[in-house]
Amino acid sequence: MSTTLLAVQTLNGLQLGILLFLIAAGLTLVFGVMDFINLAHGVQYMLGAYLAVAGYQLTGSFWLALIIGLALALFCGLVLEFLVFRRLYDRDHLDQVLATFGVILFLNEAVKVIWGAAPLSLPAPNLLDGAIPLVNNLQYPVYRLALIVSGLGVAALLYVLVTRTRVGMLVRAGATNPDMVAALGVNIRRLFMIVFGFGTMLAGFAGIMAAPILSVEPGMGDNLLILAFVVIVVGGIGSIRGAFLAALIIGLVDTLGRSFATDIAKLALPPAAANDVGPALASMLIYILMAAVLFFRPSGLFPVRSA
């Protein structure tokens, strides 16, 4: 295992972590404030990607596609909120899981009908094309670096919003003590709309940013959704800080695990066995991590509610 490979994989891990954070942030906000578990959050990520591809096909510009994608993703999210989700806020978690599962089934299929089952792609903008040398002989694609940087930017923005603004204060209060916020006479409906719309935009943004490097296909949000679940469970549901930290940890552990598990397994096992055990172990790694965290801290690293 060369240091170059290690450096590249670390960057890739960060990049996965950033994507996970963008998805997990919305998920954990919505759950924290609204006590609403939204499985359809993953398809909102997918929608972002598809809508950006459609925007690109229409305009030929990545930047316009980004704006169109974001706007349409927000619009779709609000339509879903209006049609389905707001009927679920006062239902139990089981109902929320099932109904949003129905949304997933519908949207995954709808995307297949509209755009076909074959993977699509969104070209990276010229500005961010190509690769730059980082250290000695290590080349890394500019776009991926840009993704990491913009993700960190969004994280910073989110931090400021949550800690410095009135809405952010309500969000934090809502995550710790929902009844109190309601008792304060805050317009809960509107707060929910804002939080939900914001979460949708974050997921859509993640989908758009991922489109040039991952293939855009039906069901692309499902796996990330589950990884995002692992992230918010490890981080502590409702905690943005926890989500950020856990997302980076999960992103790094997963990526590095996949590239080095076989090598590490070879230290203990004969090569043939290591080739079998390595990948299996790598795919279990983050779940083992999650189990370990929960074993010691059943409400995650940064528990918000003392329930």
């Binding site: 109904a99 129905g102 949304v103 009908v113």
Partner: peptide
């Protein structure tokens, strides 16, 4: 594309 029908039905 039966899920197109089943999804909303489930909801």
């Amino acid at each position: 594309h039966w899920r197109l029908i089943f999804g909303p039905l489930l909801i």
